[in-house]
Write a protein that binds this DNA or RNA. Structure first.
Length: 467
RNA sequence: GGUGGGUUGGCCGAGAGGCGAGGCAACGGACUGCAAAUCCGUGUACACGGGUUCAAAUCCCGUACCCACCUCCA
């Protein structure tokens, strides 16, 4: 079965056929670095990280471009609010975002272009659009340049909307637009804005409109035509619609497939900063580990809305620990799979992933394999095959507990040795008590260790401890 | 007004005409000195009303409620 992906443009799941066999070019709309990332923000990073990993398993060399929007109205407004230079604000938030991605084992993109670094490319594209009659400088002296929606008959095709049905922008001030639906390619600088937030252009100093950066950067790094363009559902319109219109009006084929991840909501509503800080990534990670949060995100389908709750998150963490427990029981026998993963991944897992990244079904296969492995352990059979399969599946989903990306657990090897020696002494004492059938004494030792945060588990091979 | 999506058991969350995905919780059993972990077993869920069909959570018609987007948004 070939890999099939859901394409927003055609609204169907269809075979993935790359433009260049063996290669896949992906452009993902990253974040506007105007505030610290919450779990909703990182969902797209995780979803498309899974896509990227799976394309790799499927034998494609992936070029993954994820941009950073580091100049826009909100950034300027927040900078002013916080009495910070806008570029200092974006730098802080960019670092927080990098940390959040790292904590969730989201692989760094092949390249991460920033809008402010691509003004010349944008100006070139805007110039071309004007030349082709699809854009015009405002006649009101504002220095704005707009895309002429009426000049592009297929405008609205991505989201299947008719221009006549669209509500006009509420922006009130029609500025120099010919039509209220025209959107800004370039925004003339205003006296109130810092000079650092404007660049010279043929229409005077100004800064880029939001959409043009993605057209310019996708074109630069992936070419006039590329395979997959991704982002959150809210970006379909206007952002992606506008990107496609611009790029195609400029003579580029642009994306072959459009993929959009659904929202994480809280209390039935879109997650927004007004809900406070509890859902910022570092705060959520006080409750569960990064790998557990990622498991939670990956266990639901990328196109399904997820109603975030700490209860569900804890459940996911419990489910994940079950998988981890199997690997621990099996003593990590069997190395991480190398070479062709397709040879060790269960067929049902591959089928699930091929079906538009069916991670929920894939996770079910993972649990089935864990159960089988546990059953075999109970029976004293060899589990190397199950361990290899489980680790391969975890790797594809980016949640292998042994992945160095999770970093050290914060435990110092030396201290572990010290604690082990101390605990061993108590365990020997407990073993003696058990041999004497002095259950009260044996349980007292276990309880004291538990109070100190050390959990004792009796196994056929003797007791083990963990914290 | 336009466009798109949703409503599944105690909870989370898949599926898309016939065989109960999976996880969490619960209950019973095995194992254990007792636990923990693990294994085995236990459920007649698909918003509502009609219809099509031998068979509907799944298809069709209608209704209700919820959410997102319509030029700031992951």
């Amino acid at each position: 079965m070939p890999l099939r992906l859901h394409d927003t443009a055609t609204r169907e799941v269809r075979d993935f056929v790359p433009l260049r066999p063996g290669h896949a070019g992906i452009y993902l709309c990253g974040l506007t670095v105007q505030s610290a990332p919450h779990v909703g923000h990182v969902r797209s990073g995780v979803c498309f990280d899974v896509l990227r990993r799976w394309l790799g398993v499927r034998g494609h060399t992936v070029t993954f471009i994820r941009n950073v929007t580091d100049i826009d109205d909100k950034i300027l407004a927040k900078g002013a609010e916080q009495d910070l230079e806008w570029w200092a604000l974006t730098a802080v938030n960019k670092r927080l975002l990098d940390e959040a991605y790292a904590l969730l084992n989201v692989l760094p993109p092949t390249y991460e272009p920033a809008a402010t670094g691509h003004v010349p490319e944008m100006l070139e594209l805007i110039g071309l659009l004007i030349e082709r009659g699809h854009a015009y400088p405002a006649t009101d002296g504002s220095g704005d340049v707009y895309f002429d929606v009426a000049s592009w008959p297929s405008y609205g095709e991505l989201t299947r909307q008719r221009v006549e049905d669209m509500e006009a922008a509420e922006d009130a001030d029609p500025r120099g637009k010919r039509d209220p639906r025209d959107f800004a390619l370039w925004k003339g600088a205003k006296a109130s804005e810092p000079r650092t937030a404007s660049w010279p252009s043929p229409w005077g100093r100004g800064r880029p409109g939001w959409h043009i950066e993605c057209s310019a950067m996708a074109g630069k790094y992936l070419g006039d035509a590329f395979d997959i363009h991704g982002g959150g559902v809210d970006l379909r319109f206007p952002h992606h619609e506008n990107e496609q219109a611009q790029s195609r009006a400029a003579g580029q084929d642009f994306a072959s497939y459009w993929m959009h991840n659904a929202w994480i909501t809280t209390s039935g509503e879109k997650m927004s900063k007004s809900l406070g800080n509890s859902l910022l990534v570092p705060n959520v990670l006080e409750r569960v580990r990064g790998v557990e949060l990622r498991y939670y995100l990956v266990a639901s389908h990328y196109r399904s809305h997820v109603e975030f709750s700490f209860e569900a998150l804890e459940e996911a963490a419990a489910a994940y620990r079950r998988i981890e427990g199997f690997l621990e029981r099996a003593d990590r026998g069997g190395a991480a799979a190398t070479g062709d993963l397709l040879e060790v991944l269960p067929a049902a897992f591959v089928d699930a992933m091929d079906d538009d990244l069916g991670t929920p079904a894939a996770v079910a296969v993972l649990h089935d394999t864990v159960r089988e492995g546990n059953r075999r352990l109970d029976a004293g059979d060899d589990v190397a095959a199950q361990v290899t399969a489980v680790r391969a599946m975890l790797g594809v989903l980016g949640v292998d507990p042994d992945d160095p990306a999770w970093g050290s657990t914060g435990t110092d090897d030396h201290l572990v040795g010290v604690v082990d020696a101390l605990v061993r002494g108590l365990l020997d004492e407990r073993a003696q008590a058990r041999a004497d059938k002095d259950w009260a004494r044996a349980d007292e030792i276990r309880d004291r260790l538990k109070a100190a945060g050390v959990e004792i588990t009796d196994t056929p091979d003797g007791p083990t401890w963990s914290t």
